[in-house]
Write a protein that binds this DNA or RNA. Structure first.
Lengths: 199, 199
DNA sequence: CGTGCCTGAGACAATAGTGTCTCAGGCGCT
DNA sequence: AGCGCCTGAGACACTATTGTCTCAGGCACG
């Protein structure tokens, strides 16, 4: 069944998330199967992580599709994107927490194309005036990604509930942390007060 | 000389940043010393990473001190904090990219106290009306940290220059990605348009 | 009930990483 | 030059991890 494989991939991804350098034994234990089974299904360890990352990338594509980031109104798509962002966060986390992944060109390319897709989304939002145009779209991409990740970190650390994530991410990403009052006059002395420190 | 050790720690931190699971041999090569020397100075691998992480935490404390996040006006301190944030980003990155670090209670405690210190900074900002009060301060902490990290990722990937980082982080964190126009009416249909997707 | 299939458990060799040691060479100092 | 001191290179045993194999047990199927 494909569903079995899906569950297994999910477990493996979870194990790798909590410890990217886990041994096959640990991963097998976490996934509830034996090390031998892992080998029978995936082959070696490298193939396993490659399959897992590939699956995560597929999930991301699916999430992007479901959110309609290519076609729907940007702000609506944005909300749908962060509505259910755990898989997205997990993917981003693993994909950036594994520098040695750069040695697998195919995954590297798929990750880049995923970034590019998100970037196009932000460009679209900038063009239609929803997103500010004075920041590089790639930065908006990274900024969103990192905050989705850290929001789930917040949940994992017990500082917020899973249901709070969309609201928190939405508020921080879209509106920033400045209060409305301060927002109108962000910095009376200019972009940076002239460096008081000296030590 | 303390300076030698500092340089070495910096190199080791850099090596661990580009590959958290690097072997002592790789780290030694990256640091430009022999594996034996690494052992003579730090002892085992565990002691080495512990020393490195401890040093990174010290650097963070120093950065926080220099920025004056405990006492100075929050928006000025904020600007100073992100002004020179590479070390901060590196520290945060390593400290969250190493889940097995949780097995070293001392470092865990120091990391938590660092988070708490940043959180107090945001609480102070909220109390004095600079930062919005409708978000948990701990979320502001994580949000800032993640964006500092991803900004340096942006630089590393070649999508921005190091000198852009403060401006990018400042804009995204403080003001968000919404355009001014959209900001006044963020979402005409409510917080989330009623879930068009169905598949 | 018997058969085939899949899984877990364990054993095994091969490999990579680690901790430790020794030795030779470079460098500053007297 | 002679003397320490430190470093790099290499060798070594030890351990963890990996890839592979075999065997026994469970389970669905006819």
């Amino acid at each position: 069944m494909e569903s079995d494989r899906e569950k297994l991939l999910q477990e493996v991804a979870g194990a790798l998330t909590s410890n990217p350098g886990a041994s096959t034994g640990e991963i097998a234990a976490a996934a509830g199967v034996s090390r031998a089974t892992l080998h029978r299904i995936f082959g070696g360890r490298d193939e396993m992580v490659e399959a897992t990352y590939g699956w995560l990338l597929e999930q991301c594509d699916r999430i992007f599709d479901a959110a309609g980031i290519d076609t729907d109104p940007v702000l609506e798509a944005f909300d749908r994107l962060i509505e259910d962002s755990y898989l997205l966060a997990q993917s981003l986390w693993l994909l950036i927490a594994t520098p040695q992944l750069e040695k697998v060109p195919e995954l590297q390319a798929r990750l880049e194309s995923q970034d590019a897709r998100l970037e196009r989304f932000f460009v679209r939002g900038q063009d239609e005036g929803s997103f500010r145009g004075d920041l590089p779209p790639r930065w908006l991409t990274y900024s969103l990604g990192s905050q989705v990740m850290s929001a789930w970190y917040l949940v994992g650390d017990g500082f917020a509930g899973a249901r709070d994530v969309p609201r928190l991410v939405r508020a921080a990403v879209l509106e920033g942390v400045l209060s409305d009052a301060a927002g109108s006059a962000p910095d009376p002395t200019g972009p940076v007060s002239p460096r008081t420190r000296e030590s």
